[in-house]
Structure formats: C-alpha cells, structure tokens
Design a protein around this nucleic acid. Structure first.
Lengths: 216, 216
DNA sequence: CCTACCGATCGGTAGG
DNA sequence: CCTACCGATCGGTAGG
C-alpha cells in the first residue's frame, strides 16, 4: 500500500511535469496559430519560440494538427457548453439566460484566441472532431434558442426571429477577437460583464434598471 | 481619328476579355480561399479547378497574394464605406443610420466570402494595403459611432457604450459567414433586410412600429 | 531499458 | 499560353 502510494506519487509528479511542458507548447502555438493561421504557422516557428527542438515537440504531440485540435477543442468546448443547464433546474428562463450568457461571455474572453480556430479555419480538423464540434455548436444554439423562447413567453424578452437572435448573440462573442485587446485598458472581467450586457440587449431584455450604473 | 477609335475599340474588347478571365480566376480563388484559408489554398488547386496551367494564372495575376489582396480590398471597401454620407446631407441621424446599416448589411451579404479575408487572415496582405484597410475600418467605426450618438441625442436610440455598440453591430455582420448559406432558403435581399433589422435593434431603435409586419 | 534530447536528412510540395 | 523545371522550405523522423 505504501509502495503503491509512493509509485502513484512519482507517476503524478512525472505526469504533472509532462502536463506543464504540454501547456507551454500549447500556449506558444496558440499565439502563433492566432496571428498567422494554421498553414502560416510552421513547426520550426513554434519550436524556435520555445527554444527547443522538433523531436522535443513531437514527443509531446503526435503532429501539428494534434496541437491545433487540442487547442480548438478545449476552447470551443468551454464556450459552447455555457448554455447547458441541469434538467431539474427550475429557475425562470430569464435567470438561466443571464447566467448562461455571462458564462458564455466569460469563456469567450478567456479563450478568445483558440476559440476562433473552429470558425476561422476548420480545414486542419479531422472529420471525427469536426463532427463533435458541429454537434456541440448545434446544441449550444438549440439550448440558447429554447431558453430565449421560454423567457419571451414569460414576458421577460422582446424579439422577433429566435434563430437569428441566437446567431446574433453568438456573433458578437465570436467576432470579439477582431477588436478586443486583452492587454489593453479593459480587464477580462470587465469585458465579460460589458459583453454579457449587450448580449442580453440583443435578446430584448426588458426592465434592466436594477443595477443601472450610468457611464458618461 | 477613325483609326484611333477602332484601335480603342479593339483595346476595349481585349480588355473586356482580359477582365472576364480575371473575374473567372477571382471567382474560383474566392471559393477556395474562403473554404481552405490562404496558406491552405494552393496555386495548383486553383488552376486545377480552372482547367488551366499555372503560367496562365500568372499571366493575369502577379502572385498568389495579388489575387487574395484584390478580393479582400474589393469586398472590404464595399462593406466599410456603407456608413459614409456627404457632408451636406441634412437628414436626421436615425434616417442615415437606417440607410447606412441596410447598405452595410447588403454589402456583407453580397461579399460574404471575400469580406471575411481581412479579419480571418490578414497575414498575406502587404503592409501598405493593411494600412489602407485599417484606415477604412477605423473610419467606418468612427462614422457609425458619430451617427449613433447623434441619433441618441435626437432621442431616437437607446444604448450605453457607443464604441461597444458599434463593434457589436459590426460583429453580427462580420460573423454572418459562419451561419449564412447563400444557396439556402433565405434569399440575399431577405437576409439583408433581416440583418439590418437586428443591427438597428442593437442600436436600441425606439418606436419601430411603422412597418411591423409580424412573422409567426 | 528509460527519458529527453541532438545533428542531419527524409519524401513531398510550395510559389514562381 | 504550355512543358519542364528552379531554389526553398514544409512537416515529420532517422540513428545515436
């Protein structure tokens, strides 16, 4: 039992180091993929920025597309599960919408680089992953549309076309990468707050005068 | 004089044919760039789809990036000049906003493939063109922001953060390429109408009950 | 026999 | 406007 524990600890430490190395590679690759696109980014360029060699990289990842797919899946999964709620969640739709859209906004701010890979360039993704991503995306818009319609029936929202409204909400978050500067004056949390506020507005939120702190 | 006219006519016809060939190349290249990205699209792939050889293509265009830049500039220019009005245009801001946003929506639907190149992958664009595009984009958001604020002062709009509202409007149009299918059930004109309607909603348009034909 | 690498070079393909 | 190519560079892997 003591031996087993010691062995497990050694493995955990080794795995932890391995995970750290992987994380570092992913971090550098993410920046390059975001700035130069998939095909515009070379393995040589990635390892150059890391200060390591190519075999080092290939020890941690099977291929260039493996890195891209890992980043893409992590980010897309975080963003597109934001509108998911337990079946026994009995809160009013408008409350779930507020929480869900804030989670969605936060996830898009946090993963605002890799979160763009799926729609900016999906050609490196293998068919199986693409299928999972399409399912994930469809579910997100289905859950968002359903919550929107429930809240409208409750009289808390005002909009016409549900699918278009859902797409418009997804668009504002998805397009943020073209204008948001994470190193700029607006902190991530503040950005997520402002973003979720405008997403609720697209949904036609009524009587939003509870925390209406005016900005000049 | 007669010779000059005849010569000019011959030149015009030759130029017309040349333009047709160029247009055909641009059309095929646009589809491939849109689907596969810049670096993911090969010159061999383009000429294969065209049924011609590489030297044929290089007779009409100087380089791969030349084709990409031509498409990118045409589309971005069409979309980002939509909010421009003559200095002596004395109409109310809300009227200009309606017309401008409808032009913007239409341009984005028409150029919904090449219109994405600037923000999906700008790395192939040479610095001079990138500078012109950035200027074009800045002017668009400046003009949009100014019109938004004027209309708000007139009491026709309701929104808080001007720059964020302008960015949200641009986002919904710019992200349309991820969900709009031009060969689908929604015709381009109908799409432009629906799109401009939701853009006005983001601006917080009041008393929009003039042409309120309800859709079930 | 493992890990974490290195210098050198593989087969193919890019833009031109 | 085609056939036949080039200098270089790509992603990935060999032996040690």
């Amino acid at each position: 039992m003591a031996i087993k524990t010691a062995t497990r600890q050694r493995q955990s430490i080794a795995d932890g180091v391995r995970d750290q190395k992987r994380e570092h590679i992913l971090e550098v690759a993410e920046n390059l993929f975001f700035r130069q696109g998939y095909a515009g980014t070379t393995i040589s360029g990635i390892v150059e920025h890391l200060g390591v060699t190519k075999p080092y990289l290939y020890y941690y990842f099977g291929s260039k597309s493996d890195i891209y797919e890992t980043l893409c899946w992590q980010a897309s999964n975080a963003c597109l599960t934001a509108m998911h709620f337990e079946a026994d969640d009995a809160r009013p739709a408008i409350e779930k919408l507020r929480e869900g859209l804030h989670r969605f906004a936060s996830a898009n701010v946090t993963h605002f680089k890799s979160g763009t890979f799926y729609y900016r360039d999906s050609s490196p993704l293998q068919p199986a992953l693409l299928k999972r991503l399409r399912l994930l995306s469809r579910r997100f818009y289905d859950e968002l549309s359903e919550t929107l319609e429930q809240a409208r029936q409750d009289g808390d929202l005002d909009f016409e076309n549900t699918r278009l409204t859902a797409r418009a909400i997804g668009s504002v978050a998805g397009f943020m990468y073209t204008w948001y500067d994470p190193d700029g004056s607006i902190a991530p949390e503040e950005m997520a707050d402002q973003l979720s506020h405008i997403l609720l507005k697209i949904a036609g939120e009524k009587s939003n005068r509870k925390g209406s702190r005016k900005h000049s």
